[in-house]
Every structure is written in C-alpha cells, then in structure tokens.
C-alpha cells in the first residue's frame, strides 16, 4: 500500500526550533521507520574570511511553490511519508540555523537520499539570494559550480 504523503514548507524571518518538523511529520503514525533531517547554519567564513552576517532575499510565492515542487519530485523518486522544509529570510548572523529539511520514510536509505536530493535542488532552484556582510564590505554571494554538479548527480546516474 502506498503511504499517504504530507508536504509542508515555510519561509519566514523568525528563527525556527532545532527540532522543527519532527512532531508534525510523525503525527503519531507508526508506519514511519526513518526520519532524516538536515540543518544548515550560517558560517563565519565564506567568500571572505570574516563574515559578520548575511541578508537573505527571496521571491515570495515562487519560493514556496518551488520548494513544494522539489518535495513532490523527491516523493516521486522515493517512497516518502512526510517532507518538511523551512528556510529563513532577512538578516542572519553566524551560527543561526538558516534552513532545515526533514524527510520521513519507511526505510533509512530512501530518507537519506531524499533529504540529500531536496537540499541539492533547493540550492540550485529555489529563488533565494544571499548578501554577505563582512569586514571587507557587503557583496552578493556568487553561485557555485559544485552546487550545480551536486544537483546534476540526480539526473545522470541511478538514484539507489
């Protein structure tokens, strides 16, 4: 039997809890065998060594739609029961959690792969832009070729 799928995404300027999505994804279900989550934090070094903060901008509407679409694509590849994606926007400082992806599945391999896939697609498709603040000044972060390569892995090879 195909388990029911539950996808929810949020984009907000307020901080989120480190266990965000855990209770909501479980919903007292007992068919979930694995929960994998990823939390991304703001580093104090990136394009310059002394990052003091960053401002995140997004395209309201398209962002949420893109994130739901990525969750749905993941669910088409692997049998998933729940996907939770939360992403912060606005001003953040080093150490702040910026993004969290949580995936629930019957088996761990599917959950690991789906979480990895969602982050790769989020980084290359969701309309967010980072502006870094550092001691050298303020600048827009450049896209990374390695992120594109990471996302391309999912279309070029077998996923299991």
């Amino acid at each position: 039997m195909k388990a029911s799928l539950d996808i929810a995404v949020e984009v907000q300027s307020e901080p989120f809890a480190m266990d965000y999505g855990y209770e909501a994804a479980l919903q007292q279900r007992t068919d979930i065998g694995a929960i994998v989550s990823f939390t991304g934090l703001v580093r104090d070094f990136n394009e310059t060594p002394d990052v003091t903060g960053l401002t995140l901008e997004h395209y309201p509407g398209m962002t949420e739609r893109t994130l739901v679409g990525i969750g749905e694509q993941a669910a088409q590849r692997w049998p998933l029961q729940a996907v939770r994606i939360i992403h912060r926007v606005g001003y953040l400082t080093p150490g702040d959690p910026i993004v969290r992806v949580l995936v629930a599945s019957a088996h761990r391999r599917d959950a690991f792969n789906a979480c990895d896939f969602i982050m790769d697609y989020l980084k290359t498709q969701a309309p967010f832009w980072k502006k870094e603040h550092s001691n050298e000044g303020v600048y827009w972060v450049k896209e990374r070729h390695t992120d594109q390569q990471d996302a391309a892995r999912w279309s070029s090879s077998a996923t299991l």
Binding site: G40, M62, V99, P127, W129, K130, K142, E143
Partner: peptide, 10 residues
C-alpha cells in the same frame, strides 16, 4: 515577469 541572478539559498 521577474529577472534575477542565479540562486544562492540553502
């Protein structure tokens, strides 16, 4: 219609 640079979220 929106124009924007490559995305850098996550």
């Amino acid at each position: 219609v929106a124009f924007f640079p490559p995305v850098t979220g996550g």
